[in-house]
């Protein structure tokens, strides 16, 4: 298959490009690497676009823009020797992928990503970088430490990485080739059957049901609600307002609470444990170093009282 050959060739080209970009002393090949990498990514996407039309529509132009931003940001993130820049480029990657999420109809996750990642986690990283970063030489505050300036075993890592990429892509496309062009049809807005309150308020807002009437059940397939009223023996079918749709937050919420409630609880427990762990690690008994605290707790001894020697 020609497309796969192009993709493998692009993997090789991308590997070479990334190799040029990785940090080392006196790197003069960065531009060539960038061009090579971008060319490789473009070639791979073009090769994908050549695939049979029957397998569906192409993503729109935003995908390409955001995708290039994400990949570019990621490459810069690992190739920039300065940790602060790396963190900032990562924010760029997060923002680009948030844009891709919006493209994919996951608005809630897009914003959650920005808030949690870009807003919380990355800021923590920046704090830590600032806490832990030091200049190797006091007279040159901008000088890089040796471990930041030089990548370690770049060739082996790049080869392994791109072999893995080639293998993964080969596997993925073999797998997706057997998928139908579109997932089997499913009832749109099926979640509304569970979101009776949402239908109720929408219908009341559109004056489709009277104040004393209540919704008995919702039929998403026929897009109707069965309404009981005190005046009638039989519930009557009322059509929804046309604008009533399940939005992204509704879908995620229903999925989270109706399908994975236990996992949600477990996630909460994990977060709490992480918090406890962070507290334990960060705690520093008076008069002891942080390292002493680790040993102290590792030995299972009780923390010493503040003030004691």
């Amino acid at each position: 298959m020609v497309e796969m050959s192009i993709i493998y060739a692009a993997c090789v080209a991308g590997a070479v490009g990334l190799l040029f970009l990785l940090p080392r002393r006196g790197n003069r090949w960065g531009l060539i690497g960038a061009v090579l990498g971008a060319g490789a990514l473009g070639a791979a996407m073009l090769a994908l676009a050549r695939v049979d039309r029957a397998s569906g529509d192409h993503p729109d132009v935003f995908f390409y823009i955001l995708g290039f931003i994400a990949v570019g940001g990621a490459v810069r993130m690992i190739s920039n020797p300065r940790p602060v820049y790396a963190a900032l480029y990562f924010i760029l990657v997060v923002l680009a992928s948030a844009g891709l999420f919006v493209q994919l109809g996951a608005e809630f996750m897009a914003f959650a990503l920005i808030i949690v990642y870009a807003g919380a986690i990355l800021i923590t990283y920046l704090f830590v970088i600032m806490l832990a970063q030091e200049a190797p030489d006091d007279r040159h505050p901008d000088a890089l430490t040796e471990y930041d300036a030089i990548a370690r075993e770049p060739i082996a890592a790049t080869i392994v990485g791109f072999v893995l990429l080639g293998a993964l892509l080969g596997m993925m496309y073999r797998g997706t080739a057997s998928l139908p062009a579109h997932a089997p049809h499913h009832v749109a807005d099926a979640e509304l059957a569970l979101l009776v309150g949402k239908v109720d308020s929408a219908m009341r807002g559109a004056d489709l049901i009277k104040p004393r009437e209540t919704i008995d059940s919702v039929d998403p397939e026929a897009r109707i609600a069965w309404v009981t009223s005190p005046s009638l023996d039989q519930p009557r079918a009322v059509e929804w307002p046309a604008g009533l749709r399940v939005d992204n937050v509704d879908a995620v919420g229903v999925s989270l609470l109706a399908e994975f409630p236990v996992s949600l609880e477990v996630a909460g427990v994990i977060l709490m444990l992480a918090m406890l762990g962070a507290v334990v690690l960060a705690r520093k008994p008076a008069g002891a170093t942080a390292q002493g605290a680790v040993q102290h707790f590792a030995l299972g001894a009780r923390p010493r009282k503040a003030g004691s020697p």
């Binding site: 072999v163 893995l164 293998a167």
Partner: peptide, 13 residues
């Protein structure tokens, strides 16, 4: 680990 994973993927493939 990454190399091993790549190998595994290739073998499975």
């Amino acid at each position: 680990m990454a190399g091993g994973a790549a190998m595994l993927v290739i073998i499975v493939w």
